[in-house]
Design a protein around this nucleic acid. Structure first.
Length: 944
DNA sequence: CAGCTCACG
DNA sequence: GACGTACGTGAGCTGT
């Protein structure tokens, strides 16, 4: 039987655009940018390598766009008219793409007057007609029309090499909600802003899919517009039907182009090495070059980087000059070693000392760094040069035979000098975790770099949704290395059947753990260069990096909570909750689950017939605080009771119960975990438990704060920045009258009231305060109106008045939005970037949401930068004052909490106040003074 | 796992 | 034409 032919058609042009944006900048020895070319070359390499593999190519051709116009421009002269020009450092790479293709001795097709898509479609159809399978190497959505079985017996699918994902009918249906044959109809409705395909205005992917699903195809949907209920969409479908038809022609792929070369000429053979080697040498792609040499037997394969552009581990951001961008060999797990004897360990450590830069990762028995036991340590010195040192493997069964391992204490004694050496940089992904684990074994790791914090300094706000915000190692490995890591759950499983890492067999554990260190090392090398290129060094080096050991220390300190006090509150709350429950059920006339908004809504608005129920998009009544307060105001007793019940239930479950459970049995204290990458603005976040949202605003809530206490003989000291965000707004927006008021120590809300209303009383001051906050958060007339309980018109008048009195504020807002629209990011005074990818979104709500966030981010972020700087300087300054024993425990955005002997309060106060007040300088000289209020007491509430 | 609600700055 | 309308978080609960 004849071999099944499989043609791979590479969409070269679209690949390099994507590669350009996703790969690090990189230049060849002559200084020509070659980042995208490198990506393209490795892709061809991988594809060609799969010759003889099941489902691999037997034939391969590259299709490129030829510059110039196509037949589509005759249909629609604006076609692709608003394409931005290619980036400056991509342009010189286009001809190199042809060189690269030639170097692989592959065919390259480009035809005047046709687009690559048409040529790809024509070749794909012809090959499939002859019974060949076809894989289109592209992620272009237009090409998805072709996917599926074809007349003649061939089958067409696609391969997205960036995401390493096959695109088959199922993926197309998932993306477009319709079969591939109807993709063109969907595209015609939604249009394409990049290609300037008009579509129907106001119709995006969601609506387009829905229309085609509902009516079957484009013409039916257009015809059905007549019968639709009156709406903007109906009008546009009617008015713009011809635009949709034109769009349909534009997205139609021409599948009968003349084929310049016969299919058979694309047959893939072993690549002749000589021209390829020449090309790789010219552009400094030495890792690929070595692989050719290796297969040719001219030089041994090199597992670790030893020279050329592959080398040079860099002290990321502190390096004065940008390092040559690394071209790294792909991850090869077979090269990792498992270290089970002392001589092996000593040999590796000796090399680590010589290298002066080592990626470190610890494997442990639990996620909580304060409770986790060490299971092993992995180290990496360069790409594929990584090891795993098992230390606690053997599982839980004491009779089971344990694998050979260096005894824990012996190994740690050898590791300690390396991990504590000033001259060896330790690189980690979220290294704060490893710092805390190792600190519990008596090792103070220093100095460190953190690839997670580096990623955040570069890309805050840039990622799509997801835990870790795109700064997790697995996501970074995909993004920067194009590498799919082994996942923890693949090694240990999930749920009930999960095993601990200690039970994982050593060969598997080594692959996983050493890969983490390897990948971390690689990321560090790439991120260091990017930080340098993109101006992220300042914020990372000066603000976030120094904070890592400080936060680790705070987490290890923890804070004491009075378990008995919490238990007393829990039972008191339980009793009151029970009482309220009975009363609520009696008022309702039946028993129901009060904690279920669904049931509560039904009871209040359907059964009891209260007015004012509003339903959200889920079709459910809202029962939130503002709704219940309205009902209570109308005399609904049940609403008052539910509000009380809610408050107590919240306090009990989230605080009095949960905090008792959070007490660490070994230390008797509660240890939170701070995240440096938790908030897009640069603020910290706190988890497990969250100690940044302990009740403070209500009387009853503050009783929970009273349970946070100092050790006997000590007190808690709370130091707050006073109105720091408003002060920063006054400085950043340059508002003379506000700056003046702060300089004179006046009541700022009163001053605002005076400016706005010409008089100060309780009412005008309260309104002024609301308006001040509205400004910080990005104002809308509706938001302000609902807060002030006035009409939107009146709120708008107040906003106008505010901008009139404080024109600097309006200038600041306009300038900030301009910069964000232009550059895509906002910046704090210290240069922290926050990205706003939705700032130019078509959807109004989405766009306006981004605008408000963008107005707020520089202010909130600058505040975060300042307190972080204060925290990094705090302990050295206290030590200098002979107060090194004071413990800094908590940070709550504008507040620091310390624990110290009662006798040291008087000495500590001025030091803490000075460090916090001076934290912006010397880098930034603020036009307004900062203000710090300090209180002390036996518990956190009393310290305020 | 999503949605609702609510604790904080 | 309806929606949602202040910025930034994390956590517990209900219900699918």
């Amino acid at each position: 039987m004849a071999e099944k032919q499989h043609l791979y058609l590479v969409d070269g042009s679209s690949y390099i655009f994507r590669a350009y944006h996703r790969l690090p900048p990189l230049t060849n020895p002559e200084g020509t940018p070659v980042g995208a070319v490198y990506g393209y070359t490795t892709m061809l390499w991988k594809l060609a390598k799969d010759l003889h593999q099941a489902d691999g190519p037997t034939h391969l051709a590259v299709i490129l766009d030829k510059s110039g116009t196509s037949f589509r421009n005759e249909l629609y002269d604006a076609y692709k008219a608003n394409r931005p020009p290619a980036p400056e450092d991509l342009v010189p790479q286009f001809p190199l793409i042809r060189d690269a293709t030639r170097a692989f001795s592959l065919s390259c097709i480009e035809e005047e007057g046709l687009e690559a898509d048409d040529m790809i479609a024509s070749y794909a159809r012809e090959a499939a007609r002859q019974g060949w399978d076809v894989t289109i190497v592209s992620s272009d959505k237009d090409l998805m029309q072709l996917v599926g079985p074809s007349a003649g017996g061939g089958y067409i699918d696609m391969l997205d090499t960036m995401k390493n994902q096959r695109i088959d009918v199922a993926e197309v249906v998932e993306k477009f909600g319709v079969q591939p044959e109807l993709v063109g109809d969907v595209l015609a409705l939604m249009g394409d802003s990049v290609d300037n395909v008009p579509g129907i205005r106001g119709v995006g992917p969601k609506t387009a899919t829905k229309l085609i699903q509902d009516y079957g195809d484009l013409e039916s949907a257009l015809a059905a517009a007549e019968t639709m209920k009156p709406s903007k969409m109906r009008e546009r479908l009617l008015d713009e039907a011809d635009m949709a038809r034109l769009s349909r022609l534009l997205v139609e792929l021409k599948q009968d182009c003349a084929l310049p070369l016969p299919l058979e000429s694309f047959r893939l053979t072993e690549i002749p090495p000589a021209p390829l080697a020449d090309f790789l040498r010219t552009h400094g792609f030495s890792s690929l070059l070595r692989r050719i040499d290796a297969t040719e037997g001219t030089s041994p394969p090199a597992p670790a980087a030893t020279g050329g552009v592959d080398s040079a581990p860099t002290r990321a951001a502190s390096a004065g000059d940008r390092q040559e961008a690394p071209v790294m060999p792909p991850v090869d797990r077979s090269l990792y070693t498992c270290i089970q004897s002392l001589p092996e360990l000593d040999a590796f450590l000796a090399r680590a000392f010589a290298t002066r830069s080592v990626a470190v990762d610890t494997e442990t028995s639990a996620l909580d760094a304060m409770q986790a036991d060490l299971t092993g340590v992995s180290l990496a010195l360069g790409p594929n040069d990584a090891c795993y040192i098992p230390l606690g493997h053997g599982g839980t069964d004491m009779f089971a035979e344990k694998p050979q391992q260096i005894p824990l204490d012996v190994a740690l004694a050898r590791l300690k000098p390396l991990l504590e050496s000033d001259t060896v940089l330790k690189i980690g992904q979220n290294i704060k975790y490893d710092l805390n684990v190792l600190a519990r074994y008596g090792i103070t790791v220093f100095p460190v770099d953190d690839t997670m914090a580096m990623s955040f300094a570069l890309n805050a706000g840039r990622s799509e949704e997801g835990i870790g915000g795109g700064h997790g190692m697995d996501e970074q490995a995909e993004r920067h290395l194009g590498h799919t890591t082994i996942k923890f759950k693949d090694v240990c499983g999930t749920g009930r059947s999960a095993i601990s890492f200690a039970e994982v067999p050593l060969d598997r554990a080594t692959e996983y753990a050493a890969e983490d260190a390897d990948v971390t090392w690689r990321l560090h090398s790439i991120l260091g260069n990017q930080l340098h290129d993109e101006g992220g060094t300042r914020i990372y080096e000066r603000v976030d990096r120094p904070l890592i050991p400080v936060l680790a220390q705070m987490e290890r300190h923890g804070i004491k909570v009075d378990r008995e006090q919490l238990a007393r509150l829990s039972s008191e709350f339980a009793e009151r909750i029970g009482g309220l429950e009975k009363e609520i059920h009696a008022l309702a006339g039946s028993e129901f689950t009060i904690g279920s908004p669904k049931q509560l809504g039904d009871v209040l608005f359907d059964r009891l017939g209260y007015k004012g129920g509003r339903k959200g998009k889920s079709g459910q009544y809202s029962t939130d605080q503002s709704v219940l307060e309205k009902l209570a105001g109308q005399g609904a007793e049940i609403a008052t009771k539910v509000l009380d019940w809610r408050q107590l239930a919240k306090l009990k479950s989230t605080y009095t119960d949960a905090l008792q459970a959070a007490i660490n049995p070994a230390t008797g204290r509660v240890h939170t975990s701070y995240s440096l990458v938790g908030a897009q603005t640069g603020r910290l976040s706190s988890t497990d438990p969250n100690l940044q949202n302990i009740p403070a605003r209500t009387e009853i809530g503050r009783r929970i704060r009273e349970a946070f206490v100092a050790e006997p003989g000590n007190v808690l000291l709370a130091a707050d920045y006073s109105q720091i965000e408003l002060r920063l707004a006054a400085h950043m927006a340059d508002v003379p009258s506000l700056k003046d008021a702060f300089a004179k120590g006046e009541d700022i809300h009163a001053r605002t009231a005076e400016e706005m209303f010409g008089m100060v009383d309780r009412d005008t001051r309260a309104r002024a305060k609301t308006i001040n906050f509205a400004i910080l958060y990005g104002i809308s007339r509706w938001g302000l109106a609902s807060r002030l309980g006035v009409e939107a018109d009146e709120a708008q008048a107040m906003i106008d008045r505010y901008f009139e009195r404080f024109p600097g504020i309006q200038r600041y807002i306009v300038a900030t939005l301009e910069q964000v629209r232009e550059c895509g990011y906002s910046e704090t005074l210290f240069g922290r970037k926050t990205w706003f990818p939705r700032i130019n979104a078509k959807n109004q709500a989405e766009r306006q949401g981004s605008e408000r966030a963008a107005i707020n981010a520089p202010i909130q972020g600058t505040c975060a930068d300042i307190i972080k700087r204060a925290m990094a300087r705090m302990m050295p300054e206290l030590r200098a004052a002979g107060l090194g024993h004071i413990r800094m425990l908590l940070q709550v955005h504008d507040e620091l909490v310390f624990e110290l002997p009662e006798n040291d309060v008087d000495a500590a106060r001025p030091v803490i106040a000075r460090v916090m007040n001076d934290a912006a300088g010397p880098a930034i000289r603020l036009d307004v003074p900062l203000g710090v209020e300090i209180g002390t007491g036996k518990n956190w509430d009393a310290a305020h």
